[in-house]
Design a protein around this nucleic acid. Sequence first.
DNA 1: TGATAACGCGACTATCTATTCGTATTATTC
DNA 2: GAATAATACGAATAGATAGTCGCGTTATCA
Lengths: 213, 213
Amino acid sequence: MTIRPTPRISARKQPKQERSRQVVAAILTAAGRVLAREGVRRFTAARVAVEAGVSVGSLYQYFPNKEAILFRLQADEWKETGGLLGGIIADATLPPLERLRAAVHEFIRSECEEAGMRAALDDAERLYRDAPEARRLRLAVTRTVRAFMREALPHTPQSVRIVAADVMMTAMEAVGKQISEGEYAPAAIDARARALADMFCAYLDTLRASVDV
Amino acid sequence: MTIRPTPRISARKQPKQERSRQVVAAILTAAGRVLAREGVRRFTAARVAVEAGVSVGSLYQYFPNKEAILFRLQADEWKETGGLLGGIIADATLPPLERLRAAVHEFIRSECEEAGMRAALDDAERLYRDAPEARRLRLAVTRTVRAFMREALPHTPQSVRIVAADVMMTAMEAVGKQISEGEYAPAAIDARARALADMFCAYLDTLRASVDV
DNA sequence: TGATAACGCGACTATCTATTCGTATTATTC
DNA sequence: GAATAATACGAATAGATAGTCGCGTTATCA
């Protein structure tokens, strides 16, 4: 329904000298601060440039628009937690459900780091979510999760597995967002992680039971 | 972290004559169309006024700002589906888990109506979510769900119930959003509703089992 | 050292947007 | 049918924002 032109997000120019690499780095950390402090609505190229101690012109030399900065920030987060989760979920020395539990807790924990920035990043998601780069990143995560599901539920029909994986991912992300947005005590956060893990395990158990009769 | 001034959202002036009531109605339906067609970013008072065939001035006579329009749109949706869900979930003639199942399906179904507008409304949520009116509405839903949980899991500690209710609500909303945003075939939507309901039921079953030993 | 490429700068333009306010029009009341 | 309240109007104001461009500075390399 909504017609959204997908924004260009890829970098405009690669920094070649050391100083320009530092400029890019300064822009990114400044962007994180601006986002956490002011929220998406007031996240502007000008403000980021000031915070980074750099001119707008320099900023636009490396990022085609502000969406690209936000995406880069988010992509870095994704790569980091994606790597962590991938490691946990692929660790064949533990039974699948243990791994799932561990992954859920790790995910929730990671959402708590720099919660202010993450919350704002979630708000900003719509600014870049339709871009192909974002889709590609998301797909990588999806594949990891599906691989896990294939291992955990080898006898469940693929169609069921895929939907289950999808719903679980959505749920986990949503709880993560919720936590990074509100003020939750550590105990409350932990309780939510546990509840989520319990819920997933219970679900997978019934799925397994409904086939392995 | 983020300092967000909570926007004023309540109506500025109550329409007293028939023609002004029509203006308000025209504004609201036009707002829905604009939102669905152009997305939040291009949702402006001017555009809504044009779409409604009304002047900006008239618009501002009944809404203090555009957030108020969005909130009103969302509030109307919430009241509608809230009423529906409340009815299903309180229907004491069915066993609790049956009701839960029915409620999940009903919720997902309702999210599919006017999906374009709903998706944009979700994007717009941050514009009004901190306002007291929005908190109050949300609380009403929370209470309904908690009451249900109390009935379904009478022997589970309250603290566990509350967290479980919270996580389930979050998950359901997230799946609903996801569906209203993407292009899903009816079968895919149904599969997700079923998966969600299965997951919830499995979870509640284990919670029940862990106490009623 | 001189030539060239990379980099950094920030004033500037072109839009958009929210919201107000004085005036004109229409309903209601007496 | 005055008088008054309610409503409708939309030009105008004040501000924000995205993104560019030409020029000066710094690095690289022969």
